[in-house]
Each structure stands twice: as C-alpha cells, then as structure tokens.
Amino acid sequence: MNVVLFGPPGAGKGTQAKELSQKYDIPHISTGDILRANVREGTELGLKAKEYMDKGELVPDQVLIGLIKDRLEEPDCANGYLLDGYPRTIPQADALDDILKEISKPLDVVVNIDVSDEELIGRLSGRRMCKCGESYHIMFNSPKEEGVCNACGGQLYQRDDDREDVIRQRLVVYSEKTKPLIDYYEEKELLVNIAGNGTVNEVFEAISEIMDRYK
C-alpha cells in the first residue's frame, strides 16, 4: 500500500509513521532522513542538496523529487511506502504525481491527521529536548528530575521553533502553503481525515482502520 501521512506541525506524524511502518512492514520515508542519508553517502543528488543546505537555503523541488524517486525505487518499497513530510506544496504534489506514474507506484490514500491549533501549540510548546536525542514533554512525558534527561543526565532545552510565537508563525505558513493540499487530494478522492486530538493509541487505531482497506 502506498500512503502519504499528512498533518500540521505537532500532529504526531513521525510517531504514527514509525508504528505504522512496523505494523504494515513498509518503509517510513521522511524527506529529512532522505536528505541526510544522501548527503552522508555523498551521492550526486546529495552533493547538490548539500550546496543549498550549506548556504541555509531550501533544497529545490527538482533535487528533492529526484531523491524521493531514487528512494521509492529501492527494493524495500516493493510492497508499499509511507511518505511523511512530503509533499508540502501543490507544485511538489504535482511533481510527486508525475514520478509515481513513471515508476507505477500511485498513491492509495492520503491520511490527514487533523488537530486544532490550540492543541498543537500546547503539544509543541511543552516539548523539551536533550542533546543525546531523547525528547520529553512537560505535561505528557516529563523527566524524573525537572530539566534533566533520564537517559544521560544532560540539561534539557526548548527548541527555538517550539516557542509559542514561532509555533503560531509555523501554523500560519502551514495554513497558507500546505493546507491547500487537502483540497488537492480531496479532488483526487484520495484524502481521508482522522481526528488527531485523541491519545497516540486512539489515533494509531483510527489510521490502521483506514490502511487495512488497502492491504
């Protein structure tokens, strides 16, 4: 089954994608992971992407879709894939559509995790990170000692993009640039909306119920 997992920042796409990937034995494909892997491996497209990343610029769609095409043609995608974080704009969606037709791997469904802005702000602004990679939440997953990582004892910090003012701006950008994709995929009769305000398990079960239709 070929799936795009869609939703605003803080909707829980990454968490859900990881669990869904294991359940359905299809790869979780994140554009960020693809970029980092290609830069690390020094591929031709990875080197092109690095030129832009080193200058703090966005990687052009043409380079990014090339990376995604290469990834979708790898053997572990033979039985399907779960795209997370792409597409984000209508031009990207058009480019993805062309690529999927070319490699005969069209989308089965686009799952949109729908969460209210206030819920998202609460989730993201409460997040705390550690340099070792562990993450916590002051309400839902607090460390044993306030401000200290359980795993390594390091000092926890709040990412700059998790401040409330920055979150609100991120949501404005999402609404302007990415939300139009909801209409795009609705017109193609691919979109299914899932309420994302429940627990992680509740959202997981709701998405699984949808994906079971395409097994």
Results as ranks from 00 to 15, higher is better:
E51K: 14
R88S: 08
T89L: 09
E145T: 15
Q16G: 03
A78K: 14
L83V: 07
V59G: 12
L107D: 02
K69F: 04
I65H: 00
I103T: 07
V109W: 05
S142W: 01
L120E: 06
G32S: 11
P27C: 05
G80I: 03
G66M: 13
S21D: 02
I90A: 05
G85D: 11
Q62F: 13
L83P: 01
L107S: 08
E119T: 15
G80E: 02
R71L: 06
L72E: 01
G56D: 11
L58R: 02
N112T: 10
E41S: 15
G133L: 08
D61I: 14
M53G: 08
C130P: 10
A93E: 04
S125C: 09
D61C: 15
E74P: 00
T31D: 06
E44S: 14
K55M: 12
E134P: 12
I65T: 06
G56L: 14
L100Q: 11
M139I: 12
R71D: 01
D108R: 07
L58H: 03
R127I: 12
I68R: 01
M53T: 11
I90W: 01
S104Q: 12
C77M: 06
S104Y: 05
L35G: 01
G32P: 11
C132Q: 08
R36W: 03
G12C: 09
V63I: 15
G133D: 04
G42S: 09
D97P: 14
L82H: 00
P143D: 10
N141Y: 02
R88I: 07
D76M: 03
Y24P: 03
R71C: 06
K13G: 09
R128K: 15
L67Y: 00
N38V: 07
G56S: 13
E118Y: 08
A78E: 12
G12F: 04
K105Q: 08
H28I: 00
E44N: 15
Y24L: 09
R71T: 02
G133N: 06
G122D: 11
D98A: 15
G46Q: 09
P87A: 12
I99T: 14
L124A: 06
K48W: 01
K18F: 00
A49W: 03
M129F: 14
L45R: 07
S135W: 08
G122R: 11
P106R: 08
Y81Q: 03
V39F: 08
G14V: 06
D54C: 13
I90V: 14
G85L: 13
E73T: 12
N38T: 09
S125I: 07
N112F: 12
K13F: 04
S142E: 09
A17P: 05
R36V: 05
R123Y: 06
Y81V: 04
P75N: 03
F140E: 02
V111Y: 00
E74C: 03
H28W: 00
A78I: 10
S104D: 13
S21R: 07
R36G: 03
D94A: 13
